[in-house]
């Protein structure tokens, strides 16, 4: 699975501009799929026929990541940007960025800005240009950029990278698709767009699929670091079965089924309660007349910074748990 994780985190995929990552995933998924399509929003829908075609299971992992969009270019060639999604302006700044056309730059903030005033409107990108004209040859208003990919192995099979949120979810979905010997229901592995700006891709995808059951794969905050409180999830303690986040209360039948499967297959798991943040789980639960929806979360430290950190054993646990659900279904 590491091969997938490396490829996915290296690809460009800012909210609203997920094309590059989509082709990477499509290539990897094609040989395992019974059908593959891209919908008008840009969601990649990988279909696998089930043994029991009466029911539909939808799995969602989002392809997009937070980033920046160019708002205007100053006379001296500095590029002003606005945020796409919930940017942590402090941790993103003084870091290199890469534009959709490959142009590199550095993201910095106005000199002399007090720490409490560091907001997206103080940020600018320096691509080395000496004038607006020169910058305009490479960059135009509306172009997007993201932090430059980082991928670093740490001790204990832990890894740090940019955009594990949610490339790690995409990798889990694809790894599980590769490993599943069969799927009980007609299963739709959906790689969604625009999650970071309000779960928009999963809204339309779940409306067209109208699933009976739905499971999202996303990262969740690990609370086992200095300064975190009231957050019981830890790195290395297994797949996190979501109870709730700020957008959803997961259906009890899904929570109970994932718990039972984890117990049965001796997959390490923990429960997750997140009091902030949302996931594609919510939009899937509310599609049409509604469905049973839940989420398998990958415990992650330092979310929405360039150094998101995970434990590979958790990632494998998440993949095994998802495979157990796709193979064995709800009963």
């Amino acid at each position: 699975m590491l091969d997938l994780i490396k490829k996915f985190t290296a690809a460009f995929s800012v909210t609203g501009e997920e094309t590059a990552l989509r082709s990477v995933i499509e290539k990897e998924a094609a040989i395992y799929a019974d059908g593959i399509s891209t919908d008008p929003m840009g969601n990649l829908i990988v279909y696998k026929k089930g043994e029991n075609s009466g029911k539909k299971l939808m799995i969602a992992a989002h392809m997009d990541e937070i980033g920046f969009v160019v708002t205007y270019i100053e006379d001296n060639g500095f590029i002003r940007v606005s945020n796409l999604g919930g940017i942590n302006s402090i941790s993103s700044s003084y870091h290199t960025v890469r534009f959709n056309n490959g142009t590199p730059g550095v993201l910095v903030f106005d000199s002399g800005t007090k720490p409490e005033d560091i907001k997206a409107n103080k940020l600018f990108v320096d691509i080395g240009a000496r004038s607006a004209k020169e910058a305009g040859k490479k960059i135009k208003i509306g172009d997007t950029c993201a932090l430059t990919p980082v991928f670093q192995k740490l001790m204990n099979n832990r890894f740090t990278a940019k955009a594990f949120d949610d490339r790690i979810g995409c990798a889990v979905a694809l790894d599980s698709l590769r490993n599943a010997k069969k799927t009980k229901y007609d299963t739709y592995y959906v790689f969604t767009v625009q999650e970071e700006v309000g779960c928009r891709g999963s809204k339309t995808a779940s409306f067209s699929i109208m699933p009976d059951y739905a499971v999202a794969l996303d990262v969740t905050t690990a609370g086992d670091v200095p300064g975190e409180k009231n957050q019981p999830v830890s790195l290395g303690k297994g797949a996190a079965i979501k109870i709730k986040d700020n957008s959803v209360i997961c259906s009890k039948v899904i929570v109970d089924r994932l718990t039972a499967l984890a117990e049965k297959h001796k997959i390490k798991y923990q429960y997750e309660i997140l009091t902030a943040g949302g996931t594609d789980t919510s939009s899937m639960q509310l599609a049409g007349a509604g469905c049973d929806a839940g989420c398998i979360s990958i415990p992650t430290r330092y979310i929405h910074t360039p150094m998101e950190t995970i434990d590979f054993s958790d990632v494998k646990a998440c993949s095994s748990l998802l495979t157990a659900l796709t193979e064995e279904g709800m009963e």
Binding site: S247, I249, Q285, L286, G288, A289, G290
Partner: peptide
């Protein structure tokens, strides 16, 4: 259900 957490049951039930 789910009114107190964002009108969820009403949206889905009235769709149905």
């Amino acid at each position: 259900g789910g009114e107190e957490i964002g009108y969820k049951g009403a949206a889905t039930a009235s769709y149905s």
